[in-house]
Each structure stands twice: as C-alpha cells, then as structure tokens.
Simulated assay, not measured.
Amino acid sequence: MSTHYQVRPATLRDAKAIAQIHSAAALEAYRGIVPDDQLKAMSSVEKRQAYWREAIEFCEPQVQVAVDGDKIVGFVGFDRSRDPKSRQTTGEIWAIYATPTHWNKGVGITLWDAAREGLLEEGCTNVTAWVPLRNERALRFHEMAGFKREMSTAKTAQVGPIKIEEVRLQRPLNG
C-alpha cells in the first residue's frame, strides 16, 4: 500500500524539521560506514538547521518537502549543477532524504518526481547526483530512478573530519 504524499516548497519554519530528518537519515544511512564518534559530530541538527534556513531563504538550492498529514517526512534540494564544467542545462539533486521510518514507502520517488518537474521548468535536460559509494541504499534508489553511475567521476570528498568516496550519477530528465 502506498501513501500519497503532498509536496510543497519549504518555508523557513520547516528548516528545523528538515535538519532533523537530514541528521536522522544520515545517522541511519552511515552507521557502520563512518565511525560513530565522527558520525555524531557531523550530524549536528543546529548546524544543519542553519544551512537549510539559508538554502530556503535564498533558494539555493530550491528545497521542497514531502508531507504526510501535517508532518514533514522528507525533503529534496535541487538546482543547477555545482560541477564546474557542467552545461547550463544540467541540474543536480543536492540532497534527498526521508525520515528512516518512511524509507521504502514512496517518499523518495515522490520527492524525485517533484525535483524533476522543477528542473524541467528551469530548462534543464539532464540531472546529476553525487552519492557515497558505500551508501548502497542511496545508490539503489538513484539507479531505480534511472540514474547511471559515471565511475570515471569517483572522487574523495571531505565531510568534516571524514573522507568519503563519492561517484556522480546522471540521467536525462525526459524519459
């Protein structure tokens, strides 16, 4: 049984809920991949809340939330690609997270559909996402949504004190 989620643009009042979802999902997704002490350090709700307040205020990236009843259960941040040599028509999923209690319940695909529509409205024809190579759940999600790995893009990203191997995934927006 799939639940129908409403998706709407995030408001400044949503920043705390977004930060809480971001932290809870990251803790769950990276448990066993990143050492616990480093995981706790990078999961500060306060730091994430400040980041998402600024993102919402300046629409960089555009942020939308998935709502189940009156509760925010996921969010997506998307905009033009941040990759230096990408075309103007390339969009990027900057972040897409659902609260762990709503994993595998359609939140992610609902958010992906909303981001795809938003990117098409912006004139984008392709979309990318950077995903840690050891985050199997995120890789599976993106691949189920039609993204393909670009293994030649694999790189090490610094997230606070942690180094994480990432790969870019890409897909056309139409189709």
Rank of each mutant, 00 (worst) to 15 (best):
E92L: 03
T128I: 04
W112E: 00
E122C: 09
M42D: 04
I109D: 09
I164G: 10
T11H: 12
R137A: 03
G106N: 06
K16H: 14
V45C: 06
I109M: 10
V159C: 06
L173P: 11
Q158A: 06
A26Y: 12
A24M: 02
R140L: 11
W52D: 01
A25I: 00
G175K: 04
A41S: 05
T125W: 07
R168H: 15
A50T: 07
D14V: 05
I56H: 11
L139S: 01
L173Y: 10
A29P: 08
T156W: 07
N126A: 15
D70T: 07
T3D: 13
A17I: 08
W130G: 02
A145M: 11
G123V: 01
V34T: 14
R134E: 12
K155E: 10
T153S: 09
V131A: 03
G108T: 11
E54K: 08
H22S: 07
F141Q: 01
K47W: 10
K85G: 11
A138F: 09
R116D: 06
H22M: 02
A157F: 05
A154D: 08
R82C: 12
L173A: 05
I162H: 06
H4L: 15
A98Y: 04
A138P: 08
D68S: 15
A24R: 02
L111F: 00
G32E: 01
G32H: 03
Q64W: 12
G108Q: 13
C124M: 09
L120D: 05
W103A: 05
D70E: 07
E46K: 04
K16Q: 11
Q170S: 14
M151W: 10
Y51R: 06
Y5M: 09
L119Y: 08
C59R: 13
K40I: 04
